[in-house]
Design a protein around this nucleic acid. Sequence first.
DNA 1: CAGGCTACTGAACATATGTACAGGCGGGGT
DNA 2: ACCCCGCCTGTACATATGTTCAGTAGCCTG
Lengths: 221, 221
Amino acid sequence: MERNEDLTGRARIRDAAMLEFAEHGVKGATIRGIAGAAGVSPALVQHHFGTKEALRQACDEHVIAVIRETKQEALDGGLGDPGFLAIAMRTALPVQRYLARSLTDGSAAANTLFDDAVAFSAEILERGTAGMNEPKTDDLHAYATVLTAMSVGMVVLHEHLSRALGADTLTAEGYPRMALAALEVLNDDLMSPELVEQARASLKSMLAAGGQPPTRSTGDR
Amino acid sequence: MERNEDLTGRARIRDAAMLEFAEHGVKGATIRGIAGAAGVSPALVQHHFGTKEALRQACDEHVIAVIRETKQEALDGGLGDPGFLAIAMRTALPVQRYLARSLTDGSAAANTLFDDAVAFSAEILERGTAGMNEPKTDDLHAYATVLTAMSVGMVVLHEHLSRALGADTLTAEGYPRMALAALEVLNDDLMSPELVEQARASLKSMLAAGGQPPTRSTGDR
DNA sequence: CAGGCTACTGAACATATGTACAGGCGGGGT
DNA sequence: ACCCCGCCTGTACATATGTTCAGTAGCCTG
């Protein structure tokens, strides 16, 4: 499996690279910095990935794989409370930060990922699945695009969101407060009242606890 | 005035720097690239700004000045249709792109600008000005923060928005379609129905014309 | 054990890039 | 006329950085 190999060498470098890329940008991150963060020599990075650009592509592919995996998992287990936002919560933090940076740094993977998210969002809105209403608009594609951009934008701006709210919105500490506000900002017609109330209750309990999401107790993994 | 001097040397460099910074990031942009784009020698950049970091700060200060000026202008002339979105539309395109990049590259100016936008948004929401309703929420600060992040996020992700919609959302070509969808995505309670209808009508006329905002009926092109 | 393969390292190299320096050009004041 | 001063340029230099190369250690296979 890929996972076994993941724990050794190559994967450590790739994970470190994702963090460094996210922190300093593709151009700002250095091979030496990545190697240092991974605890290996700079030459090993070249040995495994050859070039910096190839390393970047490896990160892209890994992110795509994780996202697809997470999406499938969410679809199987019935998509959670506020849809996309919940999915974003699940995916690993380094992946999110790398993706957020890639969206402004520019990468083919980020582009297709965004476009896929728009298509997925449009699909869900169209055939109102699980408490999702079909919005009354004459431009559903633009609707889905804007909705996606707003969701993704909250991840891209997580640093500023977190600073303004006083808690990291990418962790369970600041996430519920942000998500609750998002539920109020967005149009009520999007979700059925029951689903809204369910999501709100779930987020409020998360807010009170300040800890892990409550879905942990239902035991899916 | 400052404007006369703006046309010569120093200002050309600063404007070129904003574009280069926006395009390649602070780290990715090079002195030589900026000088080339401005049509001057790399040494002149040093002569005027001394160091790359100082040039960056000069860009920051200029952006802050432009934003403040635009905001004041918008406040005096009665803030336009959908509030912040309209303001964003007005500010010069290079400024927006530079700001969007700075928000993810990290800069003190971008941070304070975002925080100011949140405070301004909260202020408007609190004392419902000009058709703006006070939202029914028990966490107005988070509400204002999320609303601001969503608005700003649309600018930050303008490249992806534009690709998905097939038209540049930072120009009058793609903007109305995006703004119309945003009006539908956001909660109706935010603005009074009259203001919503007014904004929608204005945007639709802009969409039909596909040209400049209706405030200037002199059709060129 | 021999051989080879893979993970890994230190040193070296070429280029890109920020920065400093010395000087030229043109105008305005004495 | 002379000189000073701001705008501007070409060149040079030190460093950062991506990349290459030769070589070592461990391990598996024959």
